[in-house]
Design a protein around this nucleic acid. Structure first.
Length: 851
RNA sequence: GGGCGAGUGGCGGAACGGUAGACGCAGCGGACUUAAAAUCCGCCGGGGCAACCUGUGAGGGUUCGAAUCCCUCCUCGCCUACCA
């Protein structure tokens, strides 16, 4: 399908006879983007046009797009983010800012390692060649990057500072180690990332993936939960993203209640947000991995059953076990727990639905007032006790009558001294009572867990920790960084962490005692690399420090960040946490990295997300070959608002292509009429001809509209406006040279951020000096843009019945008079009474009528 | 199961509570051409000869006025997974 369009176009393109107008060898009347774009790209490269220094001496503007994973060949779905960002960067330059718009690569990660395993090449080589390829493609698209500002996370001069950051967190107590389960493929004998587990099976060998407990490093992000929430206030971000983060952090307030084990008196703290239901607890459930479980069943006749259940759970993947539709399973421990409120003994069980790492890993079972507990109790034949009656029947206590759990607020029943109290109030009273007696305390819990950063992989930043028999866990001294990735590693996809197979890496000396030591063989999650890369752009080549404090203070925070919504709860939370923590460590003067955020939408083709693995892509090179980068850029921006998903329709490309060609042809064929001094001519005498006035009005209206649209990222309507202006120029052949000159110059400047090659070509064609890209963004003349005659509609009860053509400044009173004076209106009002008249000057008159 | 978005002509979309369908694609008509392509100009939601009627996923509501705001439901997309 796509290839057909290609063939048609190639045929069409080559069939035209290339003609050169005599004496004008520098500029062809025929729009040939390939030629124009190659010319300007070469010039930009040679002259280092977009170097950071080019706009120095002006107020700063840091525009950053979420950096790319170096996957190789790009398609149009990849570059939407960069196109959106580039237009904004170019607009900001023209608005008079010193713009930092740097390229970067998030170059560590699993794909490189997989490629290494499949093709037996080094992940670094694979990554480097992809980055080279992508740089060529970014240049082909005409992106205004300063490549001297490039940051690559896999280079030792970058990851050295990732390791430094780890050490700072370690020393501050923000990095700690504990045992945690990883996905483990017993056949490959390797740890797997969640995305390598498909339906509970290893994606490579289809073995059943199990859990294995390993020593892992964590960052204490939970310590920043409240800050992550409260700082939202100062971020100019889409509310949608803030909301998603709020839910992800999942702050909930409740009470931790101390249950005890019958007989031994051992404490089992239980977190609940519904302490008002405490009197209705009929059983208690622990996570299968709860530390108390083994102890409780050791030597009892329940031990075998419980062990069997635990092992079965361990074999299940997290997805499987926590799928909502998975059957609720559980086994009794044969031990009771004492409810501190009632003194009553209730059975203890373990069940699949209780998570060891949320709350306390123990949940009280209140079947009468929790849907999930209700289902579980029915299934297991556990008792149900009503403790909250609906307000409509405040003494109802019959549990047999319950069809389902009653989860709404109501009135306490069966709750001793709290009977008769509204449940919302009882929540507080019971919490107070527990706190007084020392058997419970108010508590805040978050859904957010600490960030597990250890990865059992090769292609990442090694964790700068070593283990000495004498000194134990020792951080690598900062002056010994980087801990460099070894090259003597084979990529088999089997065995523990790949680094463990490199003796030269593993074996080292302890910096404290000089004795033998072993390095940590894990690398850091790539999200650590991307949680501080924006800071590196302030001083990307600094070899002495992670960043230059003065330059970071100057450039950051990022003024405008551009990227996809899919990062709402991962990257955008991690980067905020790291920035907040660095601020608290005294290393940054600000505590939020991204002041403004814009989320571009995903590109779809044939109803599916454009992606290489699905095979539905429009390759960037093919687009540039056929239509040129300017058409590719403009079409990508024209098909939909940039923040919404966009369906790529190959036919529509033609329309954008025609528009750019019409703009080119118009300016080029009229360039002899161009007057460089049109401004003074206009100042001397304002044109009076109808075409002149119409074109001037349209030009300034377009400028107003395009400016506004650029400010709010409405690029699709900005381009529609430019199309209208070009259309207007074609149907107004009678304009004067002065008006034509103004229109041609302003059109060229307005086109420039969207179609930068065309912009420069026309700018040069008009005989102007310098680059279009560095001209000041023009100011619209509101007086010229104003319409002097407007159409005002007359509505009767909201229905349009008449249209009036009136001067724009016509007053309310006059509009009302004109509306009533219309014969048509009068006829329609026959026998009716006007009860109310609403007048919106310049827009409408609405007559509210009745009998 | 939860969260976040989105539903407008044949299609992509436009419309910061005020003439629904800008702009573009496709389609139709015309000019140019021996002819076709390209180009340029015009028409283009549905019904009706017309006046007019009707129309923004469905149903209610608020308002002088709703695609837009509120409630209920349906469909699709993305993110997430039993959070006590």
């Amino acid at each position: 399908m796509y290839l057909c369009a290609l063939c048609v176009f190639v045929v069409r393109f080559s069939s035209g006879s290339p003609r050169q107008p005599p004496g004008k060898a520098s500029m062809d009347d025929k729009y040939s983007p390939q030629q124009i774009e190659a010319k300007w790209q070469q010039r930009w490269r040679e002259q280092r046009t977009y170097s950071l220094a080019a706009t120095a001496g002006k107020p700063k503007f840091f525009l950053l797009e979420m950096f790319a994973y170096p996957s190789g060949d790009l398609h149009m779905g990849h570059v939407r983010c960069y196109t959106v960002g580039d237009v904004q960067a170019r607009y900001r330059i023209m608005k008079g800012f010193h713009v930092l718009h740097p390229p970067g690569f998030d170059a560590f990660g699993l794909n490189a390692e997989n490629a290494a395993i499949q093709r037996q090449i080094h992940p670094g080589d694979w990554t480097e060649s992809n980055m080279k390829r992508m740089r060529e493609q970014y240049e082909r698209m005409g992106f205004s990057y300063d490549w001297d500002q490039l940051v690559v996370t896999s280079h030792a001069d970058y990851y050295r500072w990732t390791q430094w950051l780890f050490l700072r967190f370690y020393k501050a107590g923000l990095a700690y180690k504990k045992k945690a389960p990883v996905n483990w493929c017993p056949s490959c004998a390797t740890a797997l990332a969640n995305e390598q587990v498909k339906d509970g099976l290893c994606e490579r060998c289809d073995s059943v993936v199990t859990k294995k407990l390993l020593d892992q490093w964590f960052f204490k992000i939970t310590q920043y939960a409240d800050r992550l929430l409260s700082n939202h206030e100062k971020l100019e971000w889409p509310e949608e993203i803030k909301t998603m983060q709020r839910h992800w952090i999942g702050r909930s307030t409740g009470v931790e209640v101390d249950f005890t084990v019958e007989g031994t008196g051992a404490k089992i703290p239980v977190f609940t947000t519904r302490v008002d239901t405490l009197f209705g607890v009929t059983y208690l459930v622990l996570a299968p991995e709860h530390p108390l479980v083994n102890e409780l069943v050791a030597g009892t006749d329940r031990e075998a059953d419980v062990r069997e259940f635990q092992e079965r759970m361990a074999r299940q993947s997290e997805i499987e076990r926590t799928a909502t539709d998975a059957p609720k399973e559980g086994v009794p421990l044969g031990v009771n727990a004492i409810n501190p409120a009632t003194g009553e003994a209730v059975p203890l069980l373990i069940a699949n639905y209780v998570l060891v790492d949320y709350g306390t890993g123990a949940v009280m079972g209140v079947p009468a007032h929790d849907t999930r507990d209700f289902a579980f109790a029915k299934e297991k034949g556990l008792p149900i006790r009503v403790v909250i009656a609906p307000p409509s029947d405040p003494t109802a206590t019959d549990s047999a009558a319950l069809q389902d759990a009653y989860v709404d607020p109501g009135v306490q029943v069966n709750s001793a001294q709290f009977d008769g109290i509204p449940s919302t109030e009882a929540k507080e009273r019971i919490a107070d009572w527990l706190e007084e007696r020392g058997t419970g305390r108010r508590q805040v819990n978050t859904r957010l867990r600490d960030w597990l950063i250890s990865r059992q992989r090769y292609w990442g930043a090694p964790i700068p920790i070593l283990y000495c028999d004498k000194c134990g866990e020792v951080p690598v001294p900062e002056d010994q960084l980087p801990v460099v990735l070894p090259s003597d590693v084979s990529f088999t996809g089997k065995g523990e962490s790949p680094l463990a197979g490199s003796p030269t890496f593993v074996n080292t000396t302890c910096p404290t005692c000089g004795g033998p030591a072993r390095r940590d063989v894990d690398t850091m999650d790539t999200f650590v690399d991307s949680s501080w890369y924006f800071l590196r752009f302030a001083s990307p080549q600094d070899e002495t420090q992670a960043w230059d404090a003065g330059l970071v203070a100057h450039w950051l925070p990022v003024d405008q960040y551009v990227g996809g919504r899919e990062h709402a709860t991962m990257h955008l939370i991690y980067a905020r946490f790291v920035t907040e923590a660095l601020h608290d460590l005294g290393l940054l003067p600000f505590d939020e990295p991204f002041t403004r955020l814009f989320n571009q939408g995903t590109v779809y083709l044939h109803g599916k997300k454009m992606s290489k693995s699905r095979g539905n892509v429009v390759p960037l090179d093919a687009m540039c070959d056929q239509y040129g980068a300017d058409t590719a850029r403009c079409f990508e921006l024209f098909i939909a608002p940039p923040d919404e998903q966009a369906e790529w329709n190959e036919k529509g490309v033609e329309g954008v292509w025609r528009f750019l060609r019409r703009a080119y042809t118009y300016v080029v064929t009229h360039r002899e009429r161009f007057q460089a001094d049109w401004r003074s001519s206009l100042a001397a005498s304002a044109p009076t001809g109808e075409d002149d006035q119409a074109v001037r009005r349209k030009t300034h209206q377009t400028l107003q509209r395009v400016t506004e649209d650029l400010e709010r990222f409405h690029y699709n309507t900005a381009l529609a406006g430019l199309m209208e202006l070009v259309n207007e120029l074609y149907v107004r052949p009678g304009i004067s040279d002065t008006v034509l000159s103004e229109a041609a110059e302003l059109l060229t400047l307005m086109l420039s951020p969207f179609a930068p090659h065309l912009g420069e070509e026309l700018w040069e064609g008009l005989g102007k000096d310098g680059m279009a890209a560095f001209q000041s963004w023009p100011e619209a003349d509101a007086a010229v843009a104003r319409e002097d005659v407007v159409e005002v509609v007359v509505q009767i009860n909201g229905k349009v019945r008449e249209k009036l053509s009136v001067p724009a400044e016509t007053t309310k009173e006059e509009l009302e008079r004109l509306a009533m004076a219309s014969d048509k209106v009068q006829a329609l009002l026959e026998g009716l009474q006007v009860k109310k008249i609403i007048v919106v000057p310049g827009k409408l008159v609405n007559l509210v009528v009745g009998k």
